[in-house]
């Protein structure tokens, strides 16, 4: 379960709601579970609720680690 997808906050609405966008698809969700958000933030959306904010710095770090995991054997083989 737990199908969830990152989307970007486009507009903060009253009553703990926000409009988020995902590649041109726009949806209204509740942000009551994640507290303060700013337009431009990415949140993980599950059943119409934001569950957590995506940490952009950690995302970059993950991508660097992925590249490292992918690069190691290539160098060894070269």
């Amino acid at each position: 379960m737990c199908l969830a997808i990152p989307a970007q906050v486009r507009e903060i609405l009253p009553d703990g709601m926000a409009r988020v966008g995902l590649d041109g698809v726009v949806k209204e969700i509740s942000t009551a579970l994640v507290g303060d958000l700013a337009v431009g933030d990415y949140v993980i959306v599950h059943v119409g609720f934001a569950l957590s904010k995506i940490d952009a710095v950690e995302a970059e770090r993950t991508l660097a680690l992925l590249a490292e995991a992918a690069g190691a054997p290539a160098e060894a083989m070269a």
């Binding site: 990152p6 991508l63 992925l66 995991a69 992918a70 054997p73 290539a74």
Partner: peptide, 23 residues
């Protein structure tokens, strides 16, 4: 889709698979 597509790169996956196989 930012924060999605980066993690669906088939080429990178095959490279990581090679690392897994090597280790």
């Amino acid at each position: 889709m930012k924060h999605v597509d980066e993690y669906r790169d088939g080429k990178l996956a095959r490279a990581i698979a090679a690392t897994i196989a090597a280790e």
